[in-house]
Design a protein around this nucleic acid. Structure first.
Lengths: 239, 239
DNA sequence: TATTGCCGTCTCAGATACTGAGATGCAAGT
DNA sequence: ACTTGCATCTCAGTATCTGAGACGGCAATA
C-alpha cells in the first residue's frame, strides 16, 4: 500500500498518531514503532502536543489528545448534516411542511439541520436554534430512548409523562400540539446511530390548521420512513 | 498566543483542521480562512485526505474525516484507563479481590483495565478479555442503564430479568454468583461519563467462598464509592 | 560508590522537502 | 464567444526539516 501522501511531515505525524492509537507510548516506544530518528519523533510529537492532538501523561508518555475528541465531534456532526440534507428536502416536499433535525444537549435540543417550506404559512427554526426539552415532539423522541435514570430526570420539568413516552416507543413516533408554541403542531421520529442508539430526532412542523389535531395520523408514515432512510445512510457511511 | 510549534507543516495542517471544525469548506474558503497560499493549502489538504483525517464531500468540499473519530475513540479509552489505574489499585487493596473495568461492545463486554489480587485464590481477567453479556454483575450494570429498547434487546439471551435490572438501578449496584463461571462471585457499579450516561462498569470478582453468597452486602459500599470517584475524576479531566 | 546504559532533549550543518508564483484546464456566468 | 473564478499541477529556489552527535539525568548494576 502506498503510504506517501506527498507531504512527508504529515506522513510522519500520521505514523505517530497511528502508533498512539493502541496505547500511550514513551518516546523510545514511538521511535521503535515508527522507525523514525529519535529527534525527529521528538520534534513531531512535541509539535502535536502544542496543537493538543497529543498530550503527555504524568509519566511523560505521549497519549492521544483532547483536540481529537473535539474534531471528531465536529466530524460526527458533519456526517449527520451531510446525510440529512437530501432526506430533509425530500420530507419537506413530501409533506409540504418545514423539516428539521434536533440533537439533545443537556436540558436543551439544538436544530442542526433544516429544510423550510418556501412559501405561505410555515414554521421557521433556523439552524443553531436552541429549544427547551420541556415540550415538543422532538423532545419526546429524544427523551423516550434515554436510559431509565436520564429519562426520569428529563421528565422533571417536562409537560409529558412516562406513559406518553411509552407510547412514543411503541408507535416509533411522537406528535405535539402547541407544546413549544401556540398554533404549531409537529411530528418526530428517532434517528439512530450505527450502534442502534438514538442520536437525533427528525421532525416536521407547521400550523395546526394544516397539520390538524392528529398530525401523526397524517404524516407519521413518511416521517418514520425518512428517519429510517437517514439511519441507514449513517450506518452505511460509517464504515 | 504563540501559535508556532516549531514544525511549520504541522502548524499549517492544524490551521486547516481548525478551519474545518466549524463547517465543510471549499479550497477557496480554506485559503481565505488560513491565509496560506492556494497550492500549499491544496497540497496539505490532499495529504490529510490521504490519511483520512480529512475527506471530500460530494461537492468536492473538504470535511473532517473518519480517522478523527477512530482516534478520538482511542483517546477516550486512554482517559478512562488512565483515570481507572489508581482507583482499581485502591479497590483491590481495600477489598482484597481482583478489580476490573468493563465496557459494552455489542453483545460482549470487554475488560479495558484490571488490578489483580497478587496471591492466593483469585479471579484473573486479562485486559482485552471479551466476555458475554448473558451473565455477570458487570453485564447487569451495562444493561440496566441502556435505553428501553436496547435494554429489552439485551435481555433476549440474558440470564436475568427486567425486575433484576430494576433492582440494580434502585440499589446502584449488581451482584452475581456463578453466572460467568461456577464458583466465582462479583459486584459491579456504574461508571458515568460527563453527560451522566453509563460508559463502563467497575467490578470486583473472586471465589464465592470468600465473597459469600451476598457479595453485595460485603462490598457494595466500597465498589460504589470507587465508581463515584472514577466518575468524578473523568468529569474533572474532561473539562 | 562508581560505572554503565538508556532515555529525553537540544544543537546545527547539510540536504531536500516544501513553498508559492505562475501555468493550465474546466465550469459557470455574462 | 469571452471572461471570471476555481482547482490542480509544475518546478526553481530556499527555508524548513532532518538526524548525527552531544549533553544531562536517572536507574540499574557491579
Amino acid at each position: 500500500m502506498d503510504n506517501s501522501s506527498g507531504v512527508g511531515v504529515i506522513d510522519k505525524a500520521a505514523m505517530v498518531l497511528d502508533a498512539l492509537e493502541s496505547r500511550p507510548a514513551s518516546l523510545a516506544q514511538l521511535v521503535t514503532a515508527t522507525g523514525l530518528a529519535r529527534p525527529t519523533v521528538h520534534r513531531l510529537a512535541v509539535a502535536l502536543v502544542h496543537h493538543r492532538l497529543v498530550n503527555r501523561d504524568i509519566q511523560g508518555r505521549f497519549v492521544l489528545g483532547a483536540r481529537l475528541v473535539e474534531l471528531a465531534s465536529a466530524a460526527g456532526e458533519d456526517r449527520l448534516t451531510a446525510a440529512a440534507g437530501p432526506v430533509l428536502l425530500q420530507l419537506r416536499d413530501a409533506t409540504g411542511e418545514s423539516a428539521q433535525i434536533f440533537r439533545r444537549q443537556g436540558d436543551s435540543r439544538i436544530c442542526v439541520a433544516s429544510a423550510e417550506r418556501p412559501v405561505g404559512l410555515r414554521d421557521t427554526i433556523p439552524v443553531g436554534t436552541q429549544l427547551s426539552m420541556r415540550g415538543g415532539s422532538a423532545a419526546q423522541v429524544l427523551l423516550a430512548w434515554e436510559d431509565h435514570d436520564r429519562l426520569l430526570e428529563g421528565l422533571t420539568n417536562a409537560r409529558f409523562t412516562p406513559t406518553v413516552l411509552a407510547g412514543v416507543r411503541r408507535r416509533g413516533w411522537a406528535q405535539s400540539l402547541g407544546e413549544r408554541e401556540p398554533g404549531v403542531a409537529s411530528v418526530s421520529a428517532p434517528v439512530r446511530g450505527p450502534s442502534g442508539r438514538v442520536i437525533a430526532a427528525l421532525s416536521i412542523s407547521g400550523p395546526i390548521e394544516r397539520l390538524t389535531r392528529q398530525p401523526g395520523r397524517l404524516h407519521s408514515d413518511v416521517v418514520c420512513n425518512s428517519a429510517r432512510i437517514l439511519t441507514e445512510s449513517l450506518r452505511k457511511s460509517g464504515e
